[in-house]
Amino acid sequence: MYYFILALLPVLSIFLQSTIFHYFSIKGSIPDLVLIFVVFHAVFRGERRGTLYGVFCGLLEDLYIGRFIGVNVLAKGLTGYIMGKAQGNVFKENLWVGIITVVAGTFINSLVVAVLLMANGTVLDLEVVYSVLYQCLYNLLLAGPIYIWYYYYIYDGLMRAAGEN
């Protein structure tokens, strides 16, 4: 059940990001729910699981998009790794942890995607910076409520049910 829900979260997130969130976009920017779940998984489970989950979620997103397959695999994998490395030093009970890690994760993920796209010859300009900032703002708004939900239902509830705590 635990792994089923873990797999379902990015599937559902991509569905929401491709449909409903576009009706509520901020200046044309939508949030990255997939990234939020990757960051939280890394924060709670460490760098190895964070990386693997990032790679899995990134692959699903890349297969859906069908262009530059591998960009999100590397970006979300690396974000999962860095956030997982940082998690040893923080108290996970603090809501600020969820908010700050999501903001940091958004910047790391965007930076990796931008570097990989430019390496593939895509021309990026200042519009990208605005787009990342708006996405960061949107992710920040969602980070708090999702962190609370994730902490109580995924981390606390399901971990115990799976006997992995």
């Binding site: 190895r48 990386t51 790679v55 890349d62 069908g66 262009r67 530059f68 397959i69 591998g70 960009v71 695999v73 590397l74 994998g77 990989l116 593939n120 010859g121």
Partner: peptide, 20 residues
């Protein structure tokens, strides 16, 4: 772990190139 990551990174670069 090291080999797994290496395979993922190389695989990602190959597919990125193929699907660009």
């Amino acid at each position: 772990w090291f080999w797994l990551i290496l395979v993922v990174v190389i695989g990602a670069f190959i597919t990125m190139n193929q699907t660009s």
